[in-house]
Each structure stands twice: as structure tokens, then as C-alpha cells.
Design a protein around this nucleic acid. Structure first.
Lengths: 216, 216
DNA sequence: TGCCAATGTGAGCTTTTCCTCATATTATTA
DNA sequence: TAATAATATGAGGAAAAGCTCACATTGGCA
């Protein structure tokens, strides 16, 4: 059974030179993992691509897994930051609901589109450690609270259980975009998809209950 | 760069004995991949768990990847079969739309629930070859056609672009269920989630357009 | 300038994994 | 029952990947 080896960066770069090294290593790792996949993306290759020696790599990352984790964390942060920023803007500006929804869906789409291969490798192929999931979970929870507040500020939003609605919104759009990017469907245009997803979200949020309430 | 090695089963088992061996190997592989992950799930361990020698394993699977592919194909088929069956039933019985939707969501949930770890390993961690994606794509396309027909038979369904709606339905429910199973959210009950997803689908399908048509 | 800490190097050790093959056992057929 | 095909075995070869460490270089500072 794999025992828990340290995943934290081994030492912090203190000089400018080493900060550049770390940056180069992370960028190289992204490229190498994309090109070869995680398993075949060897640390030797990463070091070579970064133009440094393997030894340097292991000065800052105690093992290959920690390199993966650093990359995954970085890209997760990027995603959450984007959403938080949009959320902030929307809370202040209060654009009409459909506009607001569209912005979120578009943002998520662009996020995935800017490096589909990397997203696939990181989140669909590489074995991320549990610590990553924990972190993701808490970040998602924070985000959810803010989304609930935002939704609550729209009078036309009719759904009862806002936390649940927020979860469904985020996860279904995320899942949809994710699979669309990974396995693009020739017959469906991105714009077309975005428009329709926004429709769905809007109808869901604003319709009066179309079934016999919640029960059965 | 990894060159394309054969992924097809090496030879077909002809006697009862060898059919049992192959079955044992596949079952063992599922267990071992679950417990250790794909990378650490070595072929030696699979053979040991199956109670056969590595040599026997390599009689039927030319390499580790082909074992993964066989497993993934098996479980993909299982999923598609379930949906096709449901689709067939629904086409004949024509249950009310909400009932029909609920059955699908529940079925998908149960499917993921019956072995969450294996699903995660196969579809979120292991590096599946392109041939798998191709197969999945065509199966999904076939399924989509049937869903379109089924949806078209409900008068209350208002959406214009049925193929698009069918894609959105399948992918968003799949994504939602998938992430719910992999990272369960303590505060959300499965039943609660199912009910709400059905709501969303139903509202999406039956509402008149709530935005300014499709444009912008 | 000289000293020490920070940083960088890369040959090669260690470990592991996939997979083969010569051999043995079991089933089938004549 | 003898002969042949199918199946099973598992020690060990080959290849590769992760990672170390003794040594070299660079930068900051007294």
C-alpha cells in the first residue's frame, strides 16, 4: 500500500534565479504531461524541457506526485479565482439574470478551452491525491455560499432550496462543458450549446414548480 | 512517443477452464485497480488476486493497457445497455414525462453507485486509449437519436433543437451524478438531488422560451 | 575580496514493472 | 491409450523511471 510521502514543496526558492527555475519546471511539466500523459511524462523529460537538471527539480519538489499536485492546485485556483471575480462583479452590477448566467457559462467554457489537453490530463487521467479533493471541496463550499446569496438577490428566482440549486448549476454546467471540450461534438457549435444551457438554467431558476411540489 | 501496440485480446478462450480464467482475471483487475489505482495496480497483483499466474494473464491480454480497455468497455456497455433498455421500455409504455425523466436519473445514479471506486479509476484516472473514446462517441450518437425520438413523442416538450437538448440532458445529468458520487456532499441527500434534477429537466423541456428566442 | 549560503548539475544506483519463454499440466480427439 | 492441442506456471530478463548525492557554480554580503 502506498504510504503517505510528503507532497509539500521541499524548499522555497529565495533568489530570483530559483524562482525562475521553479516557474520553468511548472511550465515544462504542463507541456510534458500534455504531450506524453502523466505516466509517460517522466521527471527527466520535465527537467530537460525546462532546461534544468533533474537535481534542480528535486530540490523544489520532493517527488513526481508533488509536481502534479502543484500544477493541479494552480489550475484549480485559476478557475476558482475566475468564478469569484465574476461573482463579485455580478453582485455589484446586478445584471439581468440571463446575462449573468451567460457570463458564467461563457467563462467556464473559455477556461476549459484555453488548454483542453492539460485539463484532461490533470482532472481526468492523473491520480490526484485526496488532499486535492479536500481542498477542492472547501473551495466549492465557499463558492456555493456566495452563489446562494447572488441568486437570492434576484426576485424572479423561484427555486426553494438555493444551496441545492447552486450545486446543480455549478456541477451540471461544469460537467457539460468538460465533456464537450474533451469529446467535441462536431454537430454542435459552442455558441449554440452555451445559449441552450443558459436557457435551461434560466427556466429552472424562474419557473414555478412544474411537478407536484417536491414529494415523489 | 508510445507506438500503437495491439489492444485486442490475444486469443479467445476455447475451453470452459480458460473462460473461467479470463473471467477471474477481469474481476481481479477490477478489484486491484480499485484498491491500488491503475498505475500501482500491477499485472502481477492482478494475476495473484485472480489465483492464476502472470503467464496466463498474458495469454489472453497482450499487455496491461488491453486489460484496462476490456474492463472499461465492459462497464461502458453495461451503462449503455441499461439506458437502451430504459429507452425501449419508455418508448412502449409512454409514462408521463416526469416519471420517465425520474427513471433515467435514478438509473444513472444507481449505475454509478454500484461501484463508485471502479468508475472513478476507469473514467477519471486511468489513461484510456483513443479507441475507447471513438467507441463511446458512436454509442452516444446512437443513443442520442433514440432519445430524440422519445422526446419528440411527448407533446408537452417545447424545445426546438432536440438533438441539442438530448446532448445537454445526458451530459449534464451524467456529470452531475458522476461528481456527486465521487465527491459526495454531506448536506445533500441523493433523493433530494434526484428530485431537483428531474425538476430542472422537466422545466427545461416544457417551458416556453423564457429568453428572447435563441439569438444572443 | 573572500566567505558562506543558495542554487545547479548529471551520472548512475535502486527499485519496480511489464512481459517472455521454456516447461509442465490438463483436456480432447483419434 | 497415445498423440496433439489447449491451457497454466513462475523464475527471471529487459527496460525504464524515480530519485540521490557528491561536487560545481553563482550570488549576496561583511
Amino acid at each position: 500500500m502506498a504510504q503517505a510521502k510528503s507532497l509539500k514543496p521541499r524548499k522555497q526558492p529565495r533568489q530570483e534565479r530559483s524562482r525562475a527555475t521553479v516557474k520553468a519546471i511548472l511550465e515544462a511539466a504542463a507541456q510534458v504531461f500534455c504531450r506524453y500523459g502523466y505516466a509517460e511524462g517522466t521527471t527527466d523529460r520535465v527537467a530537460e524541457r525546462a532546461g534544468v537538471s533533474v537535481g534542480s527539480l528535486y530540490q523544489y519538489f520532493p517527488n513526481k506526485e508533488s509536481l502534479l499536485l502543484a500544477l493541479a492546485n494552480f489550475h484549480m485556483e485559476e478557475g476558482f479565482d475566475l468564478l469569484e471575480r465574476l461573482l463579485c462583479e455580478s453582485t455589484q452590477q446586478k445584471p439581468p439574470l440571463p446575462i449573468m448566467l451567460r457570463r458564467f457559462v461563457e467563462a467556464l467554457m473559455e477556461l476549459h478551452l484555453q488548454n483542453p489537453d492539460l485539463h484532461r490530463v490533470l482532472f481526468n487521467e492523473a491520480p490526484l491525491p485526496p488532499s486535492f479533493s479536500k481542498e477542492k471541496e472547501t473551495r466549492e463550499h465557499e463558492l456555493s455560499l456566495k452563489i446562494v446569496n447572488l441568486l437570492a438577490s434576484y426576485e424572479e428566482v423561484q427555486v426553494m432550496n438555493l444551496p441545492l440549486a447552486s450545486y446543480i448549476l455549478v456541477q451540471s454546467v461544469e460537467g457539460l462543458v468538460h465533456s464537450y471540450i474533451i469529446y467535441p461534438v462536431a454537430k454542435i457549435e459552442a455558441d449554440e450549446l452555451i445559449g441552450e444551457v443558459v436557457e435551461m438554467m434560466h427556466r429552472y431558476l424562474t419557473s414555478a414548480s412544474s411537478l407536484q411540489s417536491g414529494k415523489l
